[in-house]
Amino acid sequence: MEQVLTYVGYIFVVIGAIFLFLGGLGIVRLPDIYCRLQAGTKASTLGAMSLILGVGFLQPQWMIKALIIIVFIALSNPLSSHALARGSYRHKIRPWTKEDIDAYAQYIKEQGENEAAEEDKQQEKQES
């Protein structure tokens, strides 16, 4: 039984390592920050989860901790990648596209116009 757990653990660790490697490869190969976020934060999420689960199988007394850490990764990782992407876009880093598909640009433009209009109004108020 213990030996089976050990083998299962090693299999998970190896799968995790492969996905972490592919995540790294994606960061090198993909063209811009948004695509790199895809590879760097997501392939590595599954990689890290699988690796930690493997460790849990190798050391059964750590299993509960391993599962809790996996849940924490699943909860925190999307938040950080979302924040990075949104922050980059707000700093006017345009996504690399082949067919110019960018629905968010329209929204940013409208919002920018609204903000500019409000600033103008406030300036007028201050002047008067």
């Binding site: 990648s81 979302h82 968010y104």
Partner: peptide
């Protein structure tokens, strides 16, 4: 929903405005 979309690779949520989601998609 936003976090689930982000965690499935190939798509992630750039912004959520009211009920509109802006999604960066690796292979549109």
């Amino acid at each position: 929903l936003a976090n689930s979309i982000t965690l499935t690779p190939g798509t992630f949520t750039v912004d959520v405005v009211d009920n509109r989601y802006y999604i960066h998609w690796l292979d549109v």
